[in-house]
């Protein structure tokens, strides 16, 4: 019994320039917001960009993007719909927003299925919104995707540092490229930057806590005008350079 799907995964992302996994050891640090915002900014600057929400059990990028009723097209595969200039894939197209509890094997199967049938076409960037931690999604991205770079999101909290440290350690051991660490939701002073420097990881910058983000979820134009988005834009040099 052989699963044929894995053999075509590379073909489906062959014309993708760079795969960036927006990741963290911890939940609630703003991964989905940063992944969506970076993808929107890249698309706005003329880079052909895809966004793939890999948080299958708790997807949220569709809320950030204010997704309207839409589904992928079929043409010898699945063509992701273009949403605000992004080729966008989410399990929401199929789960309809219902709770979709998945164990590891189900996650892997769903991921392999979507990777093997989704035709991303030519892209400069494919941004992956990762679920938190070093579980199934992280392991499968490393196992199945060609050369992903991990952009790691953290907060000033030592709790986030504790988990992110493990993610960094694992990526290092596996020799997976780390784009760098972004400190999100910054309020006041923190010395977390020094801690990351000690780990010899590139510190890409800090983004202040911005309450305007929550008020503008679903409204992409207004979201891109927030302080959060303006600070996120400064990270682009690390992706495009």
């Amino acid at each position: 019994m052989v699963d044929p799907r894995i053999s075509v995964i590379d073909d489906r992302v062959r014309k993708v320039g760079r795969i960036i996994a927006v990741s963290s050891g911890k939940g609630g640090v703003g991964k989905s917001l940063l992944a969506s915002t970076l993808a929107l900014i890249l698309a706005g600057k003329g880079y052909s960009t895809g966004l793939f929400d890999l948080d299958f059990t708790s997807p949220s990028t569709h809320v950030i993007l204010g997704l309207k009723e839409t589904r992928p097209l079929e043409d010898r595969g699945i063509i992701p719909p273009v949403v605000h200039g992004l080729k966008y894939m989410t399990i929401i197209y199929y789960s309809g927003g219902r709770a979709t509890p998945l164990r590891g094997i189900d996650f892997s199967n769903a991921f392999i299925e979507l990777l093997s049938v989704t035709d991303w076409g030519e892209l400069d960037f494919l941004i992956l919104d990762m679920p938190p931690g070093i579980g199934d999604a992280t392991l499968d991205v490393i196992r199945l995707m060609r050369k992903p770079g991990f952009l790691i999101v953290t907060t000033p909290s030592p709790l986030a540092f504790e988990t992110v440290k493990k993610l960094i350690g694992m990526l290092r051991e596996l020799d997976i490229p780390i784009v760098g660490v972004v400190e999100n939701m910054k309020t006041g002073f923190s010395n977390i930057q020094q801690e990351y420097r000690k780990l010899n990881v590139k510190f890409l910058g800090e983004i202040p806590y911005d309450p305007a983000v929550e008020e503008n979820l679903g409204n992409v134009d207004r979201l891109l005008k927030t302080v959060f988005a303006k600070e996120a834009e400064k990270l682009l040099e690390h992706l495009t350079g």
Partner: peptide
């Protein structure tokens, strides 16, 4: 479910 059998869990 045709597109993504795992959404049967939904």
């Amino acid at each position: 479910i045709h597109f993504l059998p795992e959404v049967s869990h939904a």
